[in-house]
């Protein structure tokens, strides 16, 4: 593991200013392979998939930020391509355990209804939601 600004040709900075310069330098001069900048249309599509609805300014900000990060992570392609070790998982890693598919103790429905933003129906025993897209009967419970 190396530091973001590690470079064998540079000397150790003697003060904090040099450190900050080295960090900036690393950011500028260690360019990682860049991806094509994302288009606004593509970011809008991602936002739609993520159930988000950013405005124009937020969309542009997201485009810039995502493009920068995705450009940076391109470096992984080269790193992984140079790895010729077997793909088998290492020993001792976490193992996902599955519980028996059987009912067990749980909190009561009332507990969960109490923290719901809106409830309705007989005795307020249901979550109240708007109509799903394509239905126009108004709010349903």
């Amino acid at each position: 593991m190396t530091n973001p600004a590690a470079s064998p040709t540079k000397t150790l900075p003697s003060d904090a200013a040099a450190y900050h310069a080295a960090m900036s330098d690393a950011h500028d001069q260690n360019p990682t392979p860049t991806a094509e900048p994302l288009s606004i249309e593509h970011v809008r599509k991602i936002a739609r998939l993520a159930m988000l609805d950013p405005g124009p300014a937020e969309l542009e900000s997201a485009r810039t930020g995502l493009s920068a990060v995705l450009g940076y992570v391109q470096r992984l392609q080269a790193a992984v391509a140079s790895d010729d070790s077997p793909a088998a998982p290492v020993e001792g890693g976490p193992v996902n355990a599955l519980r028996n598919d059987a009912p067990g103790p749980t909190l009561s429905r009332d507990v969960f209804l109490k923290i719901a933003p809106d409830t309705g129906g007989p005795d307020g025993a249901y979550l109240r939601i708007p109509s799903p897209p394509g239905h126009d009967e108004g709010a349903s419970a």
Partner: peptide
């Protein structure tokens, strides 16, 4: 001690 971290220019001098 990771070789590349030692005396890295990316570290603050106090960290090194």
């Amino acid at each position: 001690l990771p070789r590349a971290i030692r005396n890295s220019t990316g570290n603050h001098p106090a960290v090194n």
